[in-house]
């Protein structure tokens, strides 16, 4: 069997997907990055190898997410792509004709607008916590609820509470206030979901034309309360695809299939999971830019560098990073 691997290394989660030649998912893995991208990618590769039938061959690898370059050099990826493009590709394969993608992850959120099968607009939020999953995580833990219990409970709500959701800090104090006033938990949870949706719409969703079909993906899509809140706010059906939390990796795998089309993959084999990678950095003193250069070593040998503005260090390895 041949598979294509997609690896999405984000700041919160790292996901791996293996697809068959027909694009169907053979296995998917979702892990916390916990600030250790190298270890997580290696662990993911090991898990993946174990769960695939013996004799499976990798025909192509694609990486995405903020750690895409790191994962790319580690595995010898055939394609390294930004997360907007990979999410869009995955969603439009899973839901043909999709026109709007809502994506909320742990630390960031984005909206992607497609028209005629092509990305026509997008926006990302990486700064404001009130528009991301961490907002719900925090509030859930304040109420001693696991995030898994959150969704079903929110759906029991009859009259969602109005919660000021402009800013995570205000939302929290407002929520405490509502709790003390005696509102029940499901109504408060539903209110929180609605607040997060309002926030999202005012932030990344600002002045975007939202047309169906609408796909909702990213880790937060697991929360049924959020799907409900989006449907209520947008007044359209919101589709949560089956592999909603690994869509970036899925898109990367699809791109890998396309880019290796009858060519040999650059994949270095699952054994890289046992290689001794380490990442380091140093401040270059070559000029007053004082660039923070990141260096990836494998078994003591430098295999990649980036972060230098003039190319002094990355060019030395002849691995210039280009936008593609």
């Amino acid at each position: 069997m041949y598979v294509y691997l997609g690896i999405d290394v984000g700041s919160v989660s790292t996901n791996l997907v293996a697809t068959g030649e027909d694009g169907t998912i053979k296995h998917s893995i979702y892990m916390r990055t916990s600030g250790k991208p190298i270890e997580v990618v290696q662990k993911g590769l090991k898990l993946m190898q174990k769960s695939l039938p013996i004799g499976t061959k990798v025909a192509g690898v694609g990486t995405t997410g903020s750690g895409r370059h790191l994962a790319g050099v580690m595995t010898g990826a055939d394609v390294i792509k930004n997360e907007i493009t990979t999410h869009a590709i995955a969603a439009s394969n899973v839901v043909p004709g999709v026109q709007t993608i809502l994506e909320i992850g742990g630390q960031d959120s984005k909206i992607i607008i497609l028209r005629n099968g092509v990305v026509s607009d997008f926006a990302m939020n990486t700064v404001c916590a009130a528009g991301t999953g961490s907002f719900l995580d925090q509030q859930a833990s304040r109420l001693n609820l696991s995030i898994e219990e959150f969704g079903p409970l929110a759906l029991q709500s009859n009259v969602p509470v109005q919660i000021a959701g402009r800013c995570a800090v205000f939302a929290e104090s407002d929520m405490i206030h509502k709790q003390q006033m005696g509102y029940n938990i499901p109504d408060i949870l539903a209110g929180l979901c609605a607040a997060l949706v309002r926030n999202y719409m005012n932030n990344v969703g600002k002045s975007k034309e939202i047309l169906p079909p609408v796909v909702f993906q990213g880790g937060v899509a697991a929360n049924a309360g959020m799907k409900w809140a989006f449907e209520k706010a947008l007044e359209v059906e919101v589709i949560v695809p089956p592999y909603f939390n690994v869509m970036g990796a899925l898109g990367a795998a699809m791109l890998a299939r396309e880019s290796t089309n009858r060519r040999k993959t650059g994949f270095r084999g699952f054994q890289v999971a046992d290689s001794d990678f380490c990442s380091g950095g140093f401040a270059c003193d070559g000029c007053p830019n004082i660039c923070e250069v990141v260096e990836i070593q494998e078994g003591g040998r430098v295999i990649a560098r980036w972060g230098d503005r003039c190319g002094r260090w990355s060019n030395a390895l002849a691995k210039e990073e280009k936008i593609s």
Partner: peptide
């Protein structure tokens, strides 16, 4: 961070090329 800008530029160029091919 340079990374955030590069991601946006990349995605933007992908989108522009894509549309053009269409």
């Amino acid at each position: 961070g340079e990374a955030g800008m590069v991601t946006r530029l990349e995605a933007f160029l992908d989108m522009v090329r894509w549309r053009r091919n269409m």
